[in-house]
């Protein structure tokens, strides 16, 4: 086994640790740093429960090898709120019943935050038409397509859609 020392800035705190080359970013967050918000759902990049923000972008932390992200800045669901003030996306999920069991929710929240930022930057999606103005409130189809990497086995999609719509205003 080879261990390599890495430094990560996680939710604003610098963390230095030696990690097995095989460790995913998800395993390091959960098992080494005690941040169990990001969930191990499928461990294959298909369910999105492990979604975190890596250098500002949403990614599947289960497929990111920790050693390959030396010096990265990571935001997990634990880092979305500002103290006791929930992130607007978190507030909207509560307001609109965007969850049932809650297992997929940390990934949904981080994915939604990253996705709204992608919209703000004008990134198109597969359903964006040539004449669509991404500065407008996103359509239901835009939100559904952009959230395709986050599954919810409870089927709370109606609430998730409403919450993201609310947060995008």
């Amino acid at each position: 086994m080879e261990a390599i020392e890495i430094v990560l800035t996680v939710n604003g705190d610098e963390r230095r640790l030696a990690v097995d080359t095989r460790a995913s970013l998800l395993d390091v967050l959960r098992e080494r740093l005690g941040l169990t918000g990001a969930k191990k759902g499928c461990d294959h990049g298909q369910c999105g429960a492990c979604t975190v923000l890596l250098d500002g972008r949403r990614v599947n932390s289960c497929l990111a090898l920790a050693v390959a992200h030396q010096g990265a800045e990571v935001i997990t669901v634990e880092g979305l709120a500002d103290g006791d003030d929930l992130h607007p996306v978190q507030r909207a999920f509560i307001e609109e019943d965007g969850f049932q069991c809650g297992y997929c929710t940390p990934g949904q929240l981080c994915s939604a935050v990253g996705m709204l930022d992608e919209l703000k930057q004008g990134w198109p999606s597969a359903v964006t038409g040539d004449d669509d103005d991404l500065g407008d409130e996103p359509s239901d189809d835009e939100i559904r397509e952009r959230m395709n990497g986050n599954l919810c086995r409870c089927g709370a999609y109606a609430g998730i859609l409403a919450a993201i719509k609310e947060a995008s205003r």
Binding site: G48, R57, V59, N60, N148, G149
Partner: peptide, 26 residues
């Protein structure tokens, strides 16, 4: 999302966006 790709080779941008998820493409 590259402006030159979207302008000159939209088929490439569309193909990329047809694949995977936002997290994976990142």
């Amino acid at each position: 999302a590259d402006a030159a790709v979207r302008r000159s080779y939209p088929v490439l941008s569309q193909a990329l966006l047809a694949g995977a998820s936002g997290q994976l493409r990142n």
